[in-house]
Amino acid sequence: MNTREMTDKIAAGQGFIAALDQSGGSTPKALAGYGVGEDEWSGDDEMFARIHEMRSRVITSPSFANGKVIGAILFEKTMDGEVDGKPTAEALKERGVVPFIKIDQGLADEENGVQLMKPLTKLDPLLEKSVAQGMFGTKERSLIKSANAEGIAAIVAQQFEVGNRVIDAGLMPILEPEYDITADDRAEGEEILKSEILKHLETLPDDRQVMLKLSIPKTANLYRDLIDHPKVLAVVALSGGYSTEEACAELEKNNGMIASFSRGLLQDLRAQQSDDEFDATLGKAIDSICAASVA
């Protein structure tokens, strides 16, 4: 797939984006959920090798290439690795899956009800490498914990500043100002978030687009204006701690929003499953998430 074909595939939205981007801090938890305890690996190299084995098993499963997964977000070490003897991005594109790379370096301490991204000290070389490896886009996460207008304005400004750097490098940015789904004031805060995003979209030149990855809103179809905006290629939803069933039920209420789930996709996969069991379990999750995305 070339860039135009990948752009069209994401814009069509006939499927969902798999989030396979657990990084250093979240990898032990992801491995534990997969049935690989900390006594089965030692040190970062072995830990990342085990998580790469899991991701490779997901990508090479027959159900992953059934056309319902249209994109996948990777961690840098996954991008740098191989799947079936080929660079991961190439292996994904051969399966009709558009590759994205996680670029943030974790969250800063909370201030004004939000956690901004830590300084992106490795951004320029990572973008250069990602272009060389044939990636289509990037993803950058920050976190909103309360309806603090000042904090939300700061988080959206940071997202768009980094997003413009990504576009300058020739990649498509997924801006991810996640809203904590447990926050009591989420409905109010998501209204502020939408307003700030729309404000920044108006400042983008007409030849630029971004993608948005947002928590499934408290108010159904709140983000319809963003989905329909000409400067937004797609709006995708994170599962945010919901189970697969809960996330799909909430997503179905939001027309035009497609999934980009991690936990919701991987929660029932286990290292101990046979290949047939693994693929059947993965296929069941893929079918339900895709159905909720295109409903």
Rank of each mutant, 00 (worst) to 15 (best):
residue 2 N to D: 12
residue 54 M to L: 04
residue 14 Q to H: 14
residue 237 A to D: 06
residue 93 K to W: 08
residue 152 I to Q: 01
residue 249 A to T: 08
residue 56 S to V: 04
residue 132 A to F: 05
residue 193 L to K: 00
residue 53 E to G: 09
residue 212 L to A: 03
residue 274 S to V: 10
residue 48 F to C: 04
residue 157 A to T: 13
residue 180 D to F: 00
residue 140 E to A: 15
residue 286 I to E: 04
residue 33 G to C: 04
residue 20 L to E: 09
residue 187 A to M: 03
residue 81 G to R: 15
residue 236 V to C: 07
residue 97 V to F: 13
residue 148 N to D: 02
residue 219 T to N: 10
residue 67 G to N: 09
residue 139 K to E: 11
residue 190 E to P: 05
residue 19 A to S: 15
residue 191 E to S: 05
residue 92 L to S: 13
residue 203 T to V: 11
residue 282 L to K: 10
residue 41 W to F: 12
residue 111 E to V: 09
residue 114 V to H: 02
residue 131 V to S: 08
residue 45 D to Y: 09
residue 213 K to T: 04
residue 24 G to C: 05
residue 244 T to I: 02
residue 227 I to M: 01
residue 123 L to F: 01
residue 264 G to Y: 00
residue 218 K to V: 12
residue 90 E to Q: 15
residue 208 R to P: 12
residue 14 Q to W: 06
residue 94 E to K: 14
residue 185 D to W: 00
residue 272 Q to V: 06
residue 24 G to V: 05
residue 161 E to K: 12
residue 87 P to L: 01
residue 142 S to H: 03
residue 76 E to V: 07
residue 47 M to N: 12
residue 90 E to D: 14
residue 1 M to W: 09
residue 80 D to P: 04
residue 122 K to R: 15
residue 205 P to F: 00
residue 180 D to R: 01
residue 74 L to S: 12
residue 19 A to G: 11
residue 184 D to I: 00
residue 263 R to K: 08
residue 138 T to S: 09
residue 34 Y to E: 11
residue 23 S to G: 07
residue 264 G to T: 05
residue 272 Q to M: 04
residue 281 T to M: 06
residue 64 F to V: 14
residue 267 Q to P: 02
residue 74 L to K: 07
residue 8 D to W: 01
residue 148 N to G: 03
residue 151 G to V: 00
residue 268 D to Q: 10
residue 138 T to P: 08
residue 289 I to C: 05
residue 76 E to W: 07
residue 260 S to I: 01
residue 3 T to Q: 09
residue 13 G to A: 06
residue 89 A to Q: 06
residue 82 E to P: 10
residue 43 G to A: 11
residue 200 H to I: 08
residue 162 V to A: 04
residue 232 V to T: 09
residue 121 T to A: 06
residue 137 G to T: 06
residue 44 D to I: 13
residue 235 V to R: 05
residue 259 A to T: 09
residue 68 K to F: 04
residue 266 L to E: 10
residue 102 K to Q: 12
residue 9 K to Y: 07
residue 101 I to V: 13
residue 276 D to R: 07
residue 273 Q to I: 01
residue 132 A to W: 07
residue 59 I to S: 11
residue 210 V to Y: 02
residue 11 A to D: 02
residue 289 I to N: 06
residue 134 G to V: 11
residue 26 S to Q: 07
residue 150 E to K: 12
residue 289 I to R: 03
residue 31 L to K: 14
residue 120 L to I: 02
residue 12 A to P: 09
residue 122 K to P: 03
residue 66 N to L: 09
residue 183 A to R: 10
residue 160 F to G: 10
residue 262 S to Q: 13
residue 269 L to A: 05
residue 57 R to P: 02
residue 223 Y to H: 05
residue 279 D to M: 08
residue 29 K to P: 01
residue 87 P to S: 13
residue 234 A to W: 06
residue 65 A to Q: 15
residue 70 I to N: 13
residue 110 E to C: 03
residue 284 K to A: 14
residue 264 G to S: 00
residue 186 R to H: 07
residue 293 S to K: 06
residue 240 G to E: 12
